[in-house]
């Protein structure tokens, strides 16, 4: 049962589901497999399989899918624009309906496939962020990068974690600065450029100062690349989920 009343997109939503409890390394593996599979999918049955798997994962995670879908409205506009562009730009056989406007059958098929890919990737990323803590994600990235030569995996993982931690604060700062400007009647100025520049300059200064602060705070608590190793636990469900994702990827590679 989800406990968050008004979930935000790409935020962690705590729950006790098997998807939440998955080994983060295998979860990242599943995301990679399904993401590539979505990029490669081209036939209706491949898309149907991927959509079914994604819907199943959402159901298992017991997160408020409807509310998240509503929050995705801005992305739906983007997907619609991409679909429309493909529909009218791709050359081919004119559609019986709207064919006079330049819409083609090939454009509809190509645009539909592209839109489905975007929706699948968006849904998978939403599921990943809603069911994985940043700490788990960081630990998985660190573990996965360990075998890559010349990469300081601990630093990359810390950078990723800090980026995701700081993003909401950055948005808060933006709102605060914008409100402070509005309180001094910034909207009265007809030319929006100076207002935008003022806002961005202040935001940049605030961000850099905050970055300095966080570096000092980390240093004062003995930041080290050699840290307590995370304890990963892989359940049978995790292995089955990964095998399913790998099988779907193989199925999408076939055509």
């Amino acid at each position: 049962m989800a406990r968050t009343a008004a979930p935000a997109l790409f935020h962690y939503l705590p729950n006790d589901s098997p998807v939440h409890a998955m080994d983060p390394r295998l979860k990242v593996g599943c995301l990679a497999c399904l993401g590539v599979a979505a990029a490669l999918a081209s036939t209706w049955w491949q898309f149907a399989l991927l959509l079914a798997a994604t819907a199943g994962a959402f159901a298992l995670a017991s997160i408020p899918s409807g509310a998240l879908l509503a929050r995705s409205a801005p992305f739906a506009v983007l997907v619609a624009v991409v679909f429309a562009t493909k529909l009218f730009v791709t050359p081919g056989t004119p559609l019986p309906v709207a064919g006079a406007l330049g819409a083609t059958v090939e454009g509809a098929l190509d645009g539909g496939a592209f839109a489905l890919r975007m929706l699948l990737v968006l849904a998978l990323c939403t599921l990943m962020m809603a069911t994985t803590t940043l700490l788990s994600l960081k630990q998985a990235i660190e573990w996965l990068l360990r075998s890559v030569p010349f990469v300081a995996e601990a630093r990359v993982a810390t950078a990723v974690e800090l980026t995701f931690t700081m993003l909401p604060l950055l948005f808060d700062s933006y709102r605060e600065i914008a409100d402070a400007q509005a309180a001094r009647c910034a909207q009265v100025r007809r030319n929006p450029l100076p207002r935008m520049l003022g806002l961005l300059r202040t935001l940049l200064e605030t961000t850099l100062r905050r970055a300095d602060d966080i570096v000092y705070a980390m240093e004062s608590r003995c930041y080290s690349d050699v840290r307590t190793a995370p304890a990963f636990a892989t359940a049978a469900f995790d292995k089955i989920a990964f095998l399913t994702a790998a099988t779907l990827l193989a199925a999408c590679c076939l055509s």
């Binding site: 803590t133 940043l134 700490l135 974690e161 995701f164 602060d213 966080i214 705070a217």
Partner: peptide, 10 residues
């Protein structure tokens, strides 16, 4: 400016 974890415990 001191917080680096997503939760208080982290």
């Amino acid at each position: 400016s001191q917080f680096v974890g997503q939760t208080v415990a982290q």
